[in-house]
Design a protein around this nucleic acid. Structure first.
Lengths: 133, 133
DNA sequence: TTAACAGTAACAATATATGTTACACTTATG
DNA sequence: CATAAGTGTAACATATATTGTTACTGTTAA
């Protein structure tokens, strides 16, 4: 399956941003992530809407942290990107009346939910400031 | 992300197969899964190679279980389809020398591995015969 | 001899993150 | 004030893996 690296990338950016005292531009971040500035702006749009970063417009601008890294958990960031789509496994729903399918879905769903909850709990306890060390 | 429903589908087929005393053909299974017979044959090829089913060629043929459902765990089937690609989250490796990236990958990897291990343990303890009830 | 089956190759469809180009708008700097 | 350096965003291309489809070969029962 295709992998979604947005969480990983955004974490990377945020932590670098915490170490910088000047705004980071999409061009510089693009160099860091080896990608296009527009891809970066798309990523940052989520962070901006969620209030984690502040946009500084115009020349010399970019983004700066709106909160210290110690106040942002990995879960906060995780939530921004496709929560609920963590697993590549999909359940089928071709026949909502088949008891076998229902049984399979119930079990699979239980297993996946338990695993996701574990991940969420771990992420909630992980501050980005801890990743910076 | 696109979901991979092969595991779910194959479990469905195996359990129906356990309840049937005649061979199931790709056409009949295709009706069950609301898909094409060739898609079914592709799915079944994995099960066949792994020794879970036996092919009965020619007219009136199809597949039958080669083992009772009580001897097959969900993990056995899970293994057949993209083990190691359970999560949609991808790690980045643009700069193997960036300590921040390393730190993020280490933490993310630890969290995901722990969750995957939990899923594997649960699946190993789940016999398909238990799903049939 | 024919119909019903598996196996497989080849190709199309689909969905989604990612990559890219283009343009409007804003701001610091000379 | 003109220009360069920025963001924001729309529009379109790319890549990739599952899924869908057609077509063919070979096998077996009736």
């Amino acid at each position: 399956m295709r992998k979604d690296s947005r969480l990983s990338r955004v974490l990377h950016v945020l932590i670098h941003m915490g170490a910088s005292h000047e705004p980071l531009s999409s061009s510089r971040i693009g160099d860091m992530l080896v990608t296009n500035p527009v891809v970066v702006r798309r990523l940052m749009a989520n962070l901006s809407k969620a209030g984690f970063i502040t946009t500084i417009p115009g020349r010399g601008g970019g983004w700066v942290l709106a909160q210290p890294l110690s106040k942002i958990t990995m879960f906060d960031v995780y939530q921004l990107f496709g929560e609920g789509t963590l697993f590549t496994l999909g359940l089928t729903d071709e026949h909502t009346n088949c008891v076998i399918e229902k049984s399979i879905n119930r079990e699979l769903d239980a297993v996946l939910n338990e695993a996701e909850q574990l991940i969420i709990d771990r992420m909630k306890s992980l501050k980005l400031s801890e990743l910076a060390q």
